[in-house]
């Protein structure tokens, strides 16, 4: 990108601030004597090279359904909620690379923290998650692909009306228990996504489902999975995040 003279001028005047910022950041990153270890960040390209060179443990931290649907070849499926319980499955003599579906990598980071706490060294997180891997043009593998279905999505502003018109629907909240406890839609049933494959039969077979997630990107696959199992399903567009923002704005942003 071309930089104008004034921008350069701006950069120079900001230099002292940048120096201070860099120093303070470095001081945070320095290993403290207490032993709070940080995980490493790895780019998609580097991960690809790493996989060619040495055996590594690659872990998809999404739910089992999502992981089997599409993942980086050779991955294990360990949901981030299960990392602590399934630590013994992770070999300690090689690098552990964690990745998730979103670019923010929050789930990978939670998992990385748990792995480090569990005593695993050499923990890596894929920068930008699977979208970055896809953008770089690398292949994926599907073990049990969930057929995509045409699932209707209901927007936050039409939610209340829709639910009142469809009393036969059960709201199925697939977020973690913690998020569910923090706040959920009235009458919502909680089955976290990473348990859905072993708990979906707890749901009443004769009811239709309204699938709700946090950001509106995971409910689609969950809904497709449930549709395959025979449930009539719809989902919440934009997830609880959009719903909360909509309710906080007092329903003004129609």
């Amino acid at each position: 990108m071309k930089m104008s003279g004034l921008q350069v001028y701006g950069r120079i005047t900001r230099l002292p601030i940048q120096v201070i910022l860099v120093i303070s950041c470095l001081s945070v990153l320095c290993p403290s004597p207490v032993g709070a270890q940080e995980w490493n960040i790895v780019e998609a390209q580097t991960l690809h090279e790493m996989m060619e060179k040495e055996p590594i443990t690659l872990v998809n931290v999404m739910s089992r359904i999502e992981c089997l649907d599409h993942r980086i070849p050779g991955s294990r499926c360990i949901a981030c909620e299960e990392v602590t319980d399934r630590l013994p499955e992770i070999p300690r003599d090689r690098k552990l690379v964690l990745y998730c579906e979103s670019e923010g990598c929050i789930r990978s980071c939670t998992a990385a923290q748990d792995a480090i706490t569990g005593g695993i060294e050499n923990v890596y997180v894929l920068k930008g998650g699977m979208p970055a891997w896809k953008r770089a043009g690398f292949v994926l593998e599907s073990v049990e692909r969930v057929p995509r279905a045409f699932i209707h999505s209901i927007k936050a502003e039409g939610l209340e009306e829709w639910l009142s018109l469809h009393p036969d629907y059960i709201v199925l909240d697939i977020r973690s228990e913690a998020l569910y406890e923090e706040g959920h839609l009235e009458g919502a049933v909680n089955v976290p996504f990473h348990q859905l494959h072993e708990r979906y039969y707890e749901l009443p077979w004769d009811r239709a489902l309204f699938v709700v997630d946090e950001r509106g990107v995971r409910s689609f696959l969950a809904a497709c999975y449930l549709a395959r199992k025979g449930f009539p399903v719809v989902r919440l567009f934009g997830g609880m995040e959009k719903w909360r923002a909509f309710s906080q704005s007092g329903g003004q942003n129609k």
Binding site: M51, E52, P55, I56, T57, L58, H70, P73, G74, S75, R76, G137, F138, V139, L140, E141, S142, V143
Partner: peptide
């Protein structure tokens, strides 16, 4: 672009770790 959309068959991923043999 190479390899885009090509998704490896399931039989090649029975072993969980990535290896050259799958190519």
């Amino acid at each position: 672009m190479a390899g885009f959309f090509t998704v490896r068959g399931a039989e090649q991923v029975m072993e969980m770790e990535y290896s050259r043999s799958s190519r």
